[in-house]
Design a protein around this nucleic acid. Sequence first.
DNA 1: AGAATTTAAGACCATTTAGTACAAAACAAC
DNA 2: GTTGTTTTGTACTAAATGGTCTTAAATTCT
Lengths: 182, 182
Amino acid sequence: MARPREFNYNLALRGATDIFWQRGYRATTLPDLLAAMGMTRGSFYQAFGDKEATYLEALDCYDKEVVSKTVELLNRCDEETAVACLMPMFQGDGSDKHGCFICNAIVEMGPEHPKVAQKARAMADRLRQAILFVLERYEQNRTDRVLPDTADLILHLYFGKQAMGKAGGPKADWEGRLRSLI
Amino acid sequence: MARPREFNYNLALRGATDIFWQRGYRATTLPDLLAAMGMTRGSFYQAFGDKEATYLEALDCYDKEVVSKTVELLNRCDEETAVACLMPMFQGDGSDKHGCFICNAIVEMGPEHPKVAQKARAMADRLRQAILFVLERYEQNRTDRVLPDTADLILHLYFGKQAMGKAGGPKADWEGRLRSLI
DNA sequence: AGAATTTAAGACCATTTAGTACAAAACAAC
DNA sequence: GTTGTTTTGTACTAAATGGTCTTAAATTCT
């Protein structure tokens, strides 16, 4: 009963997610964003509201697509050891070339944008929970540390690695490190 | 032989450092910056060049003032244990309310601004070196891990803590964690 | 005191920003 | 085919951006 959309909402949202992930909120101009989403102003403002709303949507998209994938990977993983399960998070499989969107969002927007901080915390919680699940699954009771705390520590290492990775520099032997932690 | 400056260069630079540290590069508008530095456009552009040059100067200032202070603290420290020496880095003594400028700069500018990335790496190296020095000083040879790697791991934890801290959330028992690592 | 020289203040400018308005276009229902 | 409805593309806008230019003020040296 009306003109059909020429764009695919989810596809456009993924484009937005990619560019916000890569460049951050402020560094992404509207023309950049529109190009990444494959649409023009008119369609964009009608379908997505505005830039800020789109950023929030992009965070949700990252949650659904990227975080969920990691969480499922950790949940399903049946490697020999917990370390082997966690390694994908630490060996930059290409998809984290621009760091971690959660980390980027916290650093850029966290202090001034409660909604972003809240979403970021929620995603971090999911990751921590999944890490904990791995640890619990492989627990050999020769561990003297509290598992949730170890999971949180590994999560912090993950964020630290993602942040520092954006400055380049040499990569470390994360497998050895994780082994010594768990 | 000419009109004297009404502002103190170093004081203005510290103002710039503070606001860049707190808000980041892009979120700091020129009026914000000028207010923080206590000067007007004319003086600013003559004395500091432009916004980008000032940001680079601010990173150097952070290096000289904040990083150096931390490094010296670590070098001079004569606590009972290495953990006690390192704890100041992990118990947010107020000065890191806005996270760590190194970390913020890497995340915001690292991938697109090689000079920033390089300065950030250099500062991170200084911190890592100081951490290593502490570890070496307190080494009881009951450690089976390579000390430089442990120092780098602690540095990553530091960055991770600084990044995640900007989203709020509960604080962890870093003393216990460090103890278990060293 | 006067000349020389640098700083200070702010008016000014071109560009870019996010966001809006509106007319043309593309479909579905009848 | 006409009507009704939504999408699309673009011209437009108002505000904010970083940066320059000009003029007046403050100092030192002679």
